[in-house]
C-alpha cells in the first residue's frame, strides 16, 4: 500500500497540489486520470521521490519516504518519468541493464544478465538490443525505458504516461503485460493514462484528478460515469458498456 497523507506542493507562488490524501492499493493496477495540468505527474514524482516533499507524508509498504535510504526505495519501486531524454549515447541493452543497478551496484552477476535478456524479450526488443537509442523510433525507445523499469524487478511500478508514442498493438501488449504482473505475480502498478478506455478496460482502481485535487476515486464502475467524467474534462462525455466494462465515448 502506498499512503499519501496531506501532501501539498507549490512551485513558486503556484499551488500545484492541495492537501492530497489518498492511497494506492497493493496488488492492484491503479490508473491516474485527469486533464493536462491536473497534477498527476507531480503526484507520481513525489511518490517516486524525484521531487522533494514539501509537506505531508508518503510511505511505500511502510517505508516512509523521508526516512528510507534512496537505494532501498529503488528496490521497492521503479518509476518511469514522462521525460525520457538521455544525454549519454546508449544501446538498448545498456539502458535496460541499468534497471539492475539497485540490485548489484555496478557488479552484475549472471542472474542480472538473465533478467535483462528476459526484459528485452518481453518488450520485443531482442532484435534491437544492440542499436543505439537515437537510432530507433520513439515508440521503440519508450519500450526500452519501460523494459528498464521491469528489469528493476520491484514490487511497485510507477509509470507516467507509458503509452506515449506506442501504437495500438504495443499499447495493448503493454497493458496485458502490466495486468499480468499484477494478477500473476501480485505486483502493484500505478500508471498515468490519457486514453481513458485503457483505464476502463484494465484498471482495478481509478483516481481522477483535477486542479491539484482528487475529484473521484474508486473502481472503474463508480468513477467512470457520465457526470464525473463530464465534470473532470469539462466536456460532454458519454459512457456506455462493452463486455461488462465501461466504454467512454468522447466524440461529440
Amino acid at each position: 500500500m502506498i499512503r499519501i497523507e496531506d501532501v501539498s506542493h507549490s512551485i513558486g507562488p503556484a499551488r500545484i497540489l492541495h492537501d492530497i490524501r489518498t492511497g494506492f492499493p497493493k496488488g492492484r493496477l491503479t490508473a491516474l486520470i485527469g486533464p493536462n495540468g491536473a497534477g498527476k505527474s507531480t503526484l507520481v514524482r513525489l511518490v517516486g521521490r524525484l521531487e522533494n516533499l514539501q509537506s505531508g507524508r508518503i510511505s511505500v509498504d511502510g517505508h516512509d519516504l523521508a526516512l528510507t535510504q534512496t537505494l532501498e526505495l529503488a528496490r521497492v519501486m521503479a518509476i518511469l518519468g514522462q521525460d525520457t531524454a538521455i544525454a549519454s549515447r546508449l544501446r538498448v541493452r545498456e539502458l535496460v541493464a541499468f534497471g539492475r543497478w539497485p540490485h548489484h551496484n555496478g557488479r552484475p552477476r549472471a542472474d542480472d544478465h538473465a533478467r535483462v535478456e528476459t526484459a528485452l524479450e518481453n518488450f520485443a526488443l531482442t532484435q534491437l538490443a544492440d542499436r543505439f537509442l537515437d537510432e530507433i523510433s520513439g515508440g521503440q525507445a519508450q519500450r526500452a525505458h519501460i523494459a528498464m523499469c521491469f528489469a528493476q524487478d520491484t514490487p511497485w511500478l510507477l509509470l507516467d504516461e507509458p503509452l506515449n508514442n506506442l501504437d495500438m498493438s504495443h499499447s495493448r501488449a503493454l497493458m496485458q503485460r502490466v495486468s499480468d504482473l499484477v494478477r500473476r505475480q501480485g505486483r502493484s502498478v500505478v500508471m498515468v493514462v490519457h486514453e481513458i478506455n485503457y483505464a476502463a478496460a484494465w484498471a482495478d482502481h481509478i483516481i481522477a484528478m483535477k486542479d491539484g485535487r482528487i475529484m473521484a476515486e474508486g473502481d472503474p464502475d463508480t468513477v467512470l460515469n457520465q457526470r464525473t467524467l463530464s465534470e473532470l474534462y469539462d466536456a460532454d462525455v458519454q459512457v456506455s458498456r462493452h463486455q461488462d466494462r465501461p466504454l467512454v465515448l468522447h466524440h461529440a
Binding site: G48, T70, R75, G81
Partner: peptide, 13 residues
C-alpha cells in the same frame, strides 16, 4: 549520466 531523475529512481545518492 542517465540524468537526475533516472539516477534518483535507481537509488543513486
Amino acid at each position: 549520466g542517465l540524468g537526475r531523475d533516472r539516477a534518483v529512481a535507481l537509488g543513486l545518492r
